[in-house]
């Protein structure tokens, strides 16, 4: 381990370039969150999150468009800080988590927009339906952590129409779309 790290550092030094590395999203330490928000009646934002998920990505700062990422979300871990509403949102009228326990995002293409900004194309599977979405992401930071590891973190958002995923329950004209916000810190493997 030490040797390969040393070799890697030397190589990086010599070439002046980093290499695409694999990262695992730090759900163990909870330095990651998957949040959603939806308007309530058009008067305010309701926010919630999914507490259980996992993800991994590969990233090379020198070649960001070669990055890939996949995230799996346990839909029954939905938490909007209101048990009765969570029960309702997990039920058949919304996420139907008994039938569709996993939601998933897998990237297909990444475009670099410069200034640490990425446009991540991919497929989002939710409620049994898979559709392409674009996540606008931004690198927050990267570097060594105080405990001997190496981390990089991103924040990304996308917006989906509930009807696109077959969720037809009417919550009103201002509440047809859900915004998803992902904050993912990865630990280099």
């Amino acid at each position: 381990m030490r040797k390969s790290l040393l070799a890697f550092s030397l190589l990086a030094l010599l070439t002046g370039k980093a290499f695409a590395a694999d990262y695992v999203v730090d759900t163990a330490g909870a330095h990651a969150s998957i949040n959603f928000k939806i308007q309530h009646l058009g008067y305010s934002w309701l926010t919630g999150r999914f507490n259980t998920f996992d993800g991994k990505f590969s990233y090379d700062p020198a070649k960001p468009e070669a990055s890939t990422i996949s995230v799996n979300i346990n839909t029954d871990s939905l938490d909007s800080n209101h048990a009765e509403r969570d029960k309702h949102l997990r039920g058949e009228e919304f996420l139907y988590v008994k039938k569709y326990p996993i939601a998933k995002f897998v990237s297909t293409k990444v475009e670099s927009l410069g200034a640490e900004r990425l446009k991540i194309f991919g497929d989002l599977s939710l409620h049994g339906i898979t559709k392409p979405v674009i996540i606008m992401a931004e690198k927050i930071g990267e570097g060594k952590d105080p405990w001997g590891g190496y981390r990089v973190g991103f924040s990304g958002t996308t917006r989906i129409a509930m009807a696109d995923y077959g969720i037809m329950t009417n919550l009103g004209p201002s509440s047809t779309h859900v915004e998803l916000m992902l904050n993912l810190e990865g630990v280099k493997q």
Binding site: N81, H82, A83, E84, D86, K87
Partner: peptide, 8 residues
Amino acid sequence: LISTADNR
């Protein structure tokens, strides 16, 4: 238990 699961 349904209504009080979130400490309400």
